[in-house]
Design a protein around this nucleic acid. Structure first.
Lengths: 205, 205
DNA sequence: CACGTTCTGAACCGCTTGGTTTGAATTTAT
DNA sequence: ATAAATTCAAACCAAGCGGTTCAGAACGTG
């Protein structure tokens, strides 16, 4: 094959990716064995190696696809015309649901755990997640400012601040394994807090 | 030996811990080989195994000590009497310096990367880091409220919000490998933003 | 110095790892 | 039905893995 891809698709390509995904997400790159992956994918090891020249490339492809999935989730479907009092709680809920979700946590974990071994992973994660989400929220905020509903000089900072406010308390508990103990009342507390702080700073009276 | 510790100290115990630390922090639990650790520690493998019955216990001891170190850094030395306009920027700087530091990043990475394999790690990390920092900042905020300098109903939420505001922009760039590209001007931007937003919400006029 | 404790290097063990090979079996398209 | 493409299972390889053993060397203390 040529230089870049070295990946060949075959009949069971998706199976291999899915099996690899489940094992890599569970055990990380080093902990995942190719035998386990082949077993999880229900293919022979020879088939797996006919698609990917080595374990590293398989991992990189799995990670790439996870990040694509993340990009799909990054605060799309925002209603540009809705007032901040409606839109901000909605966005807050979306943000919280994402980072407490199994998917959200696992894609983050790939990035953090493997960044030394695969340095480009950090870049890919940032571009497909945080940067995109900031841009989308930023677009909304820009519109709200144009309509005179908000007054923000530094849109990017404001978008980041809002994201972080939504993470108060819940994010670290989530990362530390307490995600399933988070109640609706706690979520509402954080959302109310985030929105009221944001409007205290950037709202017009 | 008895049930719990199974750890025996000897002349080169600290060397072993230091060698283990450097290799575990670099390669994670699965990626670190006991041969590498022994080499990094400049001890024989037999010595290492005379101290720790297995690799798992060695890892757990290394992680435990890293978390103790983190507890030492958690916003100690706050001046209870200083006004918020002085104390908040000071705390913000401390928070940012911590999470952008090599140590801060690595201890976080241990937690995130290994939490499936060592479920108690999340608990230890949370107790020695986020929870402690929140308590210390919360104590400060309580005092400021008592002096009439701030008005806060939910101290814990406010402390968490402040922490998260300090992480705007910088934290995720840090996690994603861009920590060395963060400028002093960017740090000042985030600190100013955090303090002004916090005071907009909780300050007295 | 003598003695007890600790550490060493080298070899060992059974097992696993990522990756390779190959003829046969299976699947798909004509 | 046939041919081509794909997949398979089983065996293989060299290297590495976590952990074990042991006689001798090194170290620290009285």
């Amino acid at each position: 094959m040529a230089t870049a891809p070295q990946i060949r698709k075959g009949r069971k390509f998706d199976q291999v990716l899915e099996g690899a995904r489940s094992v890599f997400l569970r055990d990380g790159f080093e902990g995942a064995s190719v035998d386990d992956i082949a077993r999880a994918a229900a293919v022979s090891k020879a088939t797996l190696y006919s698609y990917f020249p080595d374990k590293r490339l398989l991992f990189m492809e799995v990670a790439r696809q996870e990040f694509l999935r993340q990009a799909d989730e990054a605060l799309n479907l925002m209603n540009p015309q809705a007032p901040p009092e409606v839109m901000l709680p909605w966005a807050a809920r979306r943000i919280i649901d994402f980072f407490t979700s199994d998917f959200g946590q696992r894609v983050f974990r790939i990035c953090v755990a493997e960044i030394d071994r695969f340095p480009d992973i950090g870049h890919q994660f940032y571009e497909s997640g945080p940067k995109l989400a900031r841009a989308r929220l930023g677009n909304y905020l820009r519109g709200a400012c144009a309509r005179g509903e908000l007054r923000i000089e530094d849109i990017d900072l404001a978008a980041d601040q809002f994201h972080e406010l939504c993470k108060a308390d819940l994010y670290l508990r989530s990362v530390c394994g307490y995600a399933d103990q988070i109640t609706e009342a706690e979520i509402a507390r954080v959302i109310d807090g985030a929105v009221s702080m944001f409007l205290a700073r950037y709202g017009v009276r």
